[in-house]
Amino acid sequence: MKDFMLLLLFCHVASPVKHSLKFFFTTSSGVKNFPDFVAVGLVDEVLMGYCDSISKIPEAKQDWAKKLGDDDPQHLEWCTQQCLLNQYEYKADIDILKQQLNQTEGVHIFQKMDGCEWDDETGEVNGFAQFGYDGEDFIAFDLKTLTWIAPKPQAVITKHKWDRDRANNEWYNYYLTQHCTELVKKYLDYGKSSLLRTELPSVFLLQKTPYSPVSCHATGFYPHRAEMFWRKDGEELHEDVEHGEILPNHDGSFQMSVDLNLSSVTPEDWRRYECVFHLSGAKNDIVTKLDKAVIRTNWVSPSEFPAGPVIGGVVGLLLLLAVCITGVFIWRRRDNGFRPANSSDSSSSDPSSVKDAALN
């Protein structure tokens, strides 16, 4: 989502800033031309490092992460070991699941996500560790009870076995509530020039046609902790409003949008509406008044189309269609009917440093 006219008006009370560290591990079976193991690490939703079963060597994706590896060879060595060890561990897990679910062939995906969120003002920490299989939740760790939650009947066997492994569950508790926070602080210290920066976006009002919703579009902001909404007469609107997701840009910044349906709004009432963008850590909000003069659109009135080129284009398309139909007719006669073509489908410790209990 992207940019336009901004009015910096009222102050917004600063909210606590939450930082996150997430590790994603993906093991696949039956996927051609793709690594059967991939692992990535993200700090505040920014890709920090990557490894897979083909290269077997972790790759830093940020300059500060490369410097961390240079300054701390033990951390780099740990990352290398995890890249090698985890692929064998999760390969065994997916084989166990396939056998447990009586799956002998086909494409199957086994995933794990773990990490934590840390509030730099209150110190509150929320840890998480969960597994998924074939796109659905399979089992997750409950920090309150130090037991596992099985949302699917197929995971009950695994739950009971993992619940009995108290040592491993205590380790998860330590990592997710304490050590993960230490890692977050370390990564933020090395990457503070980029991870702790604040960049306000450009904000635009966009509309496809005069009858379409008006989209308030913000792009180029950082960090991703932001919210945007429409309000009328100073009050936030909840009806006739559709919020989009926060999406990444290629340069590491983010974009988002929120649409307002104007079908029941009279032109005289437009001045009562405004779009508000709030970025966590920023002193001021960006307020954009609803004004037809500043709306960007690619829509062109039919009366503005040149008649000659349009008519010529239509005639050309009709001639091309006639040729195509004739060609198909001739082909069908020569081949004695249509036959469909064949097709084929073609630093420190982390939960992964302690081998998870067998799935079965």
Rank of each mutant, 00 (worst) to 15 (best):
residue 24 F to Y: 12
residue 325 I to M: 14
residue 76 L to Y: 11
residue 232 K to C: 12
residue 345 D to P: 10
residue 320 L to T: 10
residue 242 E to N: 10
residue 296 R to C: 07
residue 351 P to W: 00
residue 241 V to S: 11
residue 148 W to I: 04
residue 101 L to C: 00
residue 282 A to D: 03
residue 230 W to Q: 04
residue 140 A to N: 04
residue 20 S to E: 15
residue 308 G to C: 10
residue 66 K to A: 15
residue 338 F to D: 07
residue 304 E to W: 01
residue 302 P to T: 00
residue 58 P to M: 03
residue 166 R to E: 15
residue 357 A to F: 03
residue 247 L to K: 15
residue 127 G to A: 03
residue 326 T to Q: 14
residue 324 C to E: 11
residue 220 G to E: 10
residue 258 V to I: 09
residue 133 Y to W: 06
residue 127 G to E: 04
residue 112 K to C: 14
residue 261 N to F: 06
residue 123 G to C: 05
residue 183 L to H: 12
residue 222 Y to L: 13
residue 188 L to W: 11
residue 202 S to H: 07
residue 54 I to P: 07
residue 25 F to P: 03
residue 336 N to L: 06
residue 5 M to G: 06
residue 56 K to Q: 15
residue 87 Q to V: 03
residue 107 V to Y: 04
residue 224 H to W: 09
residue 275 C to K: 02
residue 336 N to I: 02
residue 29 S to E: 05
residue 106 G to Q: 02
residue 352 S to P: 01
residue 214 V to T: 13
residue 119 D to L: 02
residue 70 D to G: 11
residue 351 P to C: 03
residue 152 K to S: 11
residue 250 H to S: 10
residue 351 P to F: 02
residue 54 I to G: 14
residue 331 W to S: 11
residue 156 V to A: 05
residue 353 S to C: 05
residue 348 S to Y: 04
residue 36 D to W: 10
residue 277 F to P: 00
residue 11 C to E: 15
residue 191 G to L: 04
residue 302 P to I: 00
residue 75 H to K: 11
residue 102 N to Y: 00
residue 231 R to G: 02
residue 122 T to G: 15
residue 70 D to I: 12
residue 41 G to M: 09
residue 311 I to K: 12
residue 124 E to I: 06
residue 55 S to A: 15
residue 135 G to C: 05
residue 331 W to E: 09
residue 313 G to W: 10
residue 265 V to H: 08
residue 103 Q to L: 07
residue 85 L to T: 08
residue 57 I to A: 12
residue 126 N to V: 05
residue 35 P to S: 07
residue 177 T to P: 00
residue 225 R to T: 13
residue 195 L to H: 01
